[in-house]
Design a protein around this nucleic acid. Structure first.
Length: 264
DNA sequence: GGCTTATGCGCAG
DNA sequence: TGCGCCTAAGCCA
């Protein structure tokens, strides 16, 4: 589920498994053969994520950039890697572990200049430590665009996807169509703080859970209890029982409670 | 087993 | 605005 928490978790896990070691790289599918050849036998020094982008820094200066897009996935294991099957874009392995990348939108080698360009078009990332949210909040406060669109704009905020968008708006009881400049700045600050908490929890848990304990049954968080509004069209709101509404906004499915998040 | 759907985003037009 | 990417989980039978 590639929102920002997924990429930060991948960066963390890959750092643990491969950081500081020499890796074998290959592209059985054939779409990244030259890149894999360049990485093969290099030391993977450092991995990091910015928003939904993953970067690997290698000992000879090579930088790998991965963007999962909608379909991309890493599968990872310890010990001997399985026989390559299907469209396996990139396999990395050391003596301890392996990881396979499939279906990614971007899997490419980039220069430091290209990294700089990439980062320049990303807004603040709630998952990067000590990030100043001011540029995002100021931009929202100036914009006539709906807050529901702005939250998903990676140049405003990096790492927020459709699930966090819907859920953080619900938790703020905010109408997704309200213009950014009409959202009180206190509320914007609270939403940023909420994103930091929710997305960090997402990294730890490896999935998105936004419901508060008091708003769901006790015990393990079941899949259908993890969200307030995302993919709950027609189901009763957990707070007020009004059926959850959905609509397309900027080519993405938007979910909200028409009562808790009423326009005003 | 098959069908539907999706967490993203760049590009054509 | 709508398509293409081309994976895999979730759902149904």
């Amino acid at each position: 589920m590639p929102e920002g928490h997924t990429l930060h978790r991948l960066a963390r896990d890959q750092q643990r498994l491969f950081g500081g070691t020499i890796v074998a790289a290959s592209s059985p599918q054939g779409r990244f053969v030259e890149g894999a050849a360049r990485l093969d036998g290099q030391r993977l020094v450092h991995t990091e994520a910015y928003g939904k982008h993953l970067l690997h820094h290698y000992g000879d200066g090579a930088i790998l950039h991965v963007h999962l897009g909608l379909y991309g996935k890493f599968s990872t294991g310890r010990g001997e890697p399985p026989e390559p099957r299907g469209a396996l874009r990139l396999r990395l392995a050391n003596d301890e572990a392996w990881t396979d990348l499939r279906g990614a939108t971007a899997c490419e080698l980039v220069t430091p200049d290209q990294v700089e360009i990439l980062l320049a078009r990303l807004g603040p990332d709630p998952l990067r430590p000590k990030t100043d949210p001011a540029p995002a909040l100021e931009r929202i406060a100036r914009s006539r665009a709906p807050i529901g669109v702005l939250l998903m704009d990676q140049s405003v905020l990096a790492g927020v996807g459709n699930v966090y968008r819907a859920e953080v708006l619900f938790r703020a009881r905010l109408d997704p169509l309200r213009a950014g400049r009409d959202v009180p700045s206190r509320l914007l600050n609270e939403m940023w703080d909420d994103l930091v908490v929710l997305m960090r929890a997402g990294v730890s848990a490896g999935r998105i859970v936004t419901t508060r304990p008091e708003d769901r049954a006790a015990g393990r968080v079941l899949r259908h209890q993890a969200h307030y509004v995302y993919r709950r069209t027609g189901l009763p709101c957990r707070i007020c029982s009004t059926p959850i509404a959905s609509a397309e906004l900027a080519a993405r499915n938007l979910f909200w409670c028409p009562s808790c998040q009423a326009p005003n």
